[in-house]
């Protein structure tokens, strides 16, 4: 149901909701960036619509709400294990259409592939998603190429226009809270074109895995993993066991974000590692995003948010890599025919 209401009304609803939910939205962290006097737009708790950064793309995605950077799985003493408590409150997450598609990718891994992940599910089951519209495409976005520019999988859509707020609610609670508000048809803002357009090769022959094409990336990539950490669809983690320094017999096991670009990702006990070359790591990531994931799960993994291109300190463009790869594949196929 669509409504026209006021920021004041929405903030009052948020205030009520805050008893049961933490509200997360992209917000401006002043001076929090890599360089001096540079802000970061990333997810944090909000209590007021005015805190939400609608005008810019967030540098980091919402994924940290459902997959915390560092998440304690259980506590242990010598012979006992105790599952870490779930947060007492649920979550409400503001996010854009592309990120809602990213949520599906997370669901695929954490709810389907190999079974249900307890920790993900217990957060996911208590999370509501509020769509933020996109009036214009941001730099490096290529959602249209990935077909993620619109999404229907939201609990509410919310657009702030000064004091006016347009809401499209698919959430009973919100409908009840907005009873009496002016009803109005509300359609989520979405873009129909991006400056960046990518063409994904249908198939990438395995003979191209060792193509010199990847060597250039090997020379440029510094293996910092930023592209993975900002990506809403990168969901890898590594386990860490820690013991408390004041009680060496007790400790906790936690999982932390991992990156297939960062050293150590494939290292096995005993020292064997599989992709020491950074170009091969690039190949592994790129093909996962736009090739092998689709073969396994039916959709491309990449949702075209372009955050990897926004963040790369070495100006490696993932989008351009796909387009160059497409050309390479076409040329290779032509040569073979």
């Amino acid at each position: 149901m669509g409504y026209q209401t006021t920021a004041e009304k929405i903030n009052a609803i948020f205030s009520d909701l805050s008893k049961d939910y933490l509200i997360y939205a992209p917000k401006r962290f002043v001076g929090d960036g890599t360089f001096t006097y540079i802000d970061t737009i990333r997810y944090g708790e909000i209590t007021d619509l005015a805190e939400i950064e609608f005008a810019e793309k967030s540098n980091y995605s919402f994924k940290e709400v459902l997959l915390p950077i560092s998440e304690t799985l259980f506590y242990f003493t010598e012979n006992e294990m105790k599952e870490a408590d779930a947060p007492k409150k649920g979550a409400i997450v503001f996010l854009r259409s592309c990120d809602l598609h990213g949520l599906k990718r997370m669901d695929t891994i954490y709810l389907e592939n190999g079974g249900v992940d307890t920790y993900y599910k217990r957060l996911r089951d208590h999370t509501k998603f509020i769509l933020m519209g996109c009036e214009n495409s941001f730099e490096n976005c290529f959602c249209v190429s990935m077909g993620t520019q619109t999404s229907e999988d939201y609990d509410a859509y919310l657009k702030v226009d000064g004091d006016n707020v347009l809401v499209d609610s698919r959430w009973d609670y919100l409908d009840a809270a907005l009873a009496g508000a002016t009803q109005a048809p509300v359609i989520a803002d979405s873009v129909t074109a991006n400056d960046t357009v990518v063409t994904i090769p249908e198939t990438v022959p395995q003979t191209l895995f060792d193509d010199p094409f990847w060597e250039e990336y090997g020379n440029r990539c510094i293996a910092c993993g930023r592209c993975n950490f900002v990506c809403p669809t990168c969901t890898c983690f590594t386990m860490q066991d820690i013991f408390y320094t004041d009680n060496g017999k007790a400790g906790e096991r936690r999982r932390v974000w991992a990156s297939c670009h960062v050293d150590g990702y494939t290292d096995m006990a005993g020292g064997h590692a599989f992709r020491n070359d950074k170009g091969q790591r690039m190949r592994f990531k790129v093909l996962h995003k736009v090739n092998d994931y689709k073969r396994r799960f039916g959709t491309h993994m990449c949702i075209g948010c372009g955050r990897c291109d926004d963040v790369c300190p070495e100006y490696i463009s993932f989008a351009n890599c796909i387009n160059r790869l497409n050309t390479l594949v076409n040329d290779t196929v032509k040569e073979e025919n």
């Binding site: 962290f29 001076g31 929090d32 960036g33 890599t34 360089f35 001096t36 970061t40 990333r42 980091y60 950077i69 910092c224 993993g225 930023r226 950490f229 974000w257 990156s259």
Partner: peptide
């Protein structure tokens, strides 16, 4: 701060 990929390190105000 410059090298942290997740904003675990930030600058003092």
């Amino acid at each position: 701060v410059i090298n942290c990929p997740t904003r675990a390190w930030t600058r003092s105000p």
